[in-house]
C-alpha cells in the first residue's frame, strides 16, 4: 500500500475515534517526535492510539489502548485490534467500535 493511502486509512480510523467522542491529547511528545507515534486520544477512562504494522507482508491498522495515564504519557500501550489496511470504511469502523466496547 502506498504511504499516502495508508495515511489516509489511519486518518479515517482516527476520525472514527473522534466521532465516538475521543479527545486528542497533547502527550507523549517525545515519542511523537522521535518515533513518529501518532496522537493519543482519550475516551472515557481509556487512552487510544492508531498505528500500523506490517505482519507477514500485509499492512494492518493497529488500535492500541491503556487505562494508565502514566503509560499513555510515555507511549506504552497494548495492541488490542488489528484491521487490514485495505479494509473498507465500514469494516474499519465496526472493528474499531468492537474493540472499544
Amino acid at each position: 500500500m502506498e504511504k499516502d493511502q495508508l495515511e489516509n486509512r489511519m486518518r479515517f480510523a482516527e476520525h472514527v475515534l473522534e466521532r465516538q467522542g475521543a479527545v486528542p491529547l497533547d502527550i507523549n511528545q517525545k515519542n511523537r517526535e522521535l518515533l513518529g507515534q501518532r496522537v493519543t486520544y482519550r475516551l472515557g477512562g481509556v487512552y487510544y492510539r492508531i498505528d500500523h504494522a506490517e505482519i507477514e507482508g500485509k499492512t494492518f491498522i493497529i488500535l492500541s489502548a491503556t487505562e494508565s495515564k502514566e503509560y499513555a504519557g510515555i507511549g506504552l500501550m497494548d495492541d488490542i485490534q488489528a484491521i487490514s489496511a485495505d479494509a473498507g470504511d465500514e469494516t474499519i469502523r465496526r472493528k474499531l467500535l468492537e474493540a472499544m466496547a
Binding site: V46, A65, T66, E67, S68, Y71, M77, D78, D79, I80, Q81, A99
Partner: peptide, 8 residues
C-alpha cells in the same frame, strides 16, 4: 495487562 487488552 490493561483491561482493554484482557477484554480484547
Amino acid at each position: 495487562r490493561s483491561e482493554s487488552y484482557i477484554k480484547s
